[in-house]
């Protein structure tokens, strides 16, 4: 194990997969410069090892970054398409949703589309309306896609490797504010993390908090604050949003009888609504109180610090909501 930040972890993970399989390649903007990708570290110097045919520095052509990845996947390779931010990826929703997600199905199983599309989510200080969005629910809603949103460097590396080896198209959503966060990461190039398995961040018996991406870190912080008040929260980081680990959530809710779903994204129509509704439908006998959600208000992400703070969900927000759920 080594201690490293997430940007380095995913770069090492990608390089390991590219060494393992010559059909793995990456394409996107700013990949071939010393810049090394949007975070500065995800692709740093990979072109030196793999050359410009496998680390393809592209024009600002989101439709074609995504479309070319689909065509190249269908034609027998495993592309990793980097669309930088989820906001920019909206330019390529057609190729992702109409093509990548549909081709296997609408052509009757003749083709597979083994690609990974990376698009960073989340608010980053001052990112404002077009560089801050969390759109994971859009893709969970689309049949054919796998959706992953990791929270730690170790998970990001292990799940990126799993995504590259997966024969389904995978939307891989890293969080901008986590790229510099550090953690323990395996050095084993064969260590691949299973898609669809949640991580228990914090064990507890009083209520279950289900979350993902950066909100997992904030929920863990909230759990510490709650513990100080004598409330033991079980925090579950889903890691994968489709498929999501219902077994882990059901097991926890069976134990605690209380559920709070916490997300950074706009709460209305968010993925948290799916988790909340599913548990309400299927675990009603176990629930001691109704399910609650917490998420961003339905506003674009504002710029100025005091207004941006209105958008963000903090540990204190989670604590207050958790106390309501716990009946404390």
């Amino acid at each position: 194990m080594s201690e490293m930040n997430q940007g380095d972890a995913v770069r090492i993970g990608l390089a390991e997969e590219m060494r393992r399989d010559p059909l793995v390649w990456a394409l996107g903007e700013d990949l071939s410069t010393a810049h090394g990708g949007t975070s500065g570290s995800q692709y740093y110097q990979l072109i030196d090892e793999f050359g410009p045919k496998r680390i393809v520095n592209t024009p600002i052509s989101e439709n074609t970054i995504m479309g070319a990845a689909v065509g190249a996947a269908v034609a027998g390779t495993r592309p990793v398409a980097d669309l930088r931010m989820a906001d920019f990826a909206m330019c390529a929703v057609d190729e992702l949703v109409n093509q990548a997600a549909k081709i296997r199905y609408m052509f009757g199983g003749q083709a597979r589309v083994p690609l990974v599309v990376r698009q960073m989510i989340g608010a980053r200080k001052g990112g404002a309306a077009q560089h801050s969005q969390s759109t994971e629910a859009w893709y969970v809603h689309t049949p054919g896609l796998v959706v992953i949103a990791p929270a730690t460097p170790g998970d990001a590396k292990g799940l990126l490797k799993a995504a590259i080896r997966c024969d389904d198209p995978v939307v891989f959503m890293e969080h901008k504010e986590l790229m510099a966060a550090t953690g323990e990461v395996t050095d084993d190039p064969e260590a691949v993390m299973p898609i669809g398995k949640a991580r228990i961040v914090n064990e507890g018996s009083d209520l279950t908090i289900v979350t993902w991406s950066k909100m997992a870190l904030i929920a863990a912080e909230a759990a510490e604050l709650l513990a100080a008040d004598g409330i033991n929260a079980e925090v579950i980081d889903l890691r994968s949003l489709w498929p999501w680990d219902k077994d882990a959530v059901y097991t926890s809710v069976a134990k605690t009888g209380r559920l709070l779903v916490a997300q950074e994204a706009v709460q209305v129509g968010g993925f948290g609504a799916e988790v909340a509704a599913d548990v309400a439908e299927n675990m009603s006998d176990a629930l001691k109180t109704h399910v609650r959600r917490i998420g961003a208000p339905r506003i674009p992400v504002p710029y100025a610090e005091p207004m941006e703070a209105e958008y963000r969900i903090t540990a204190e927000h989670i604590v207050a909501k958790a106390k309501e759920v716990a009946g404390a």
């Binding site: 045919k53 479309g67 689909v70 065509g71 269908v74 034609a75 027998g76 083709a111």
Partner: peptide, 25 residues
């Protein structure tokens, strides 16, 4: 025959990617 398609121009973006795959392979 990699498919008829209901979305216009998507054959062009997928086509250049398929060509990149041929080159890579």
């Amino acid at each position: 025959m990699l498919g008829a398609n209901g979305i216009l121009a998507d054959g062009t973006t997928m086509g250049v990617g398929a060509a990149q795959a041929l080159v890579l392979r």
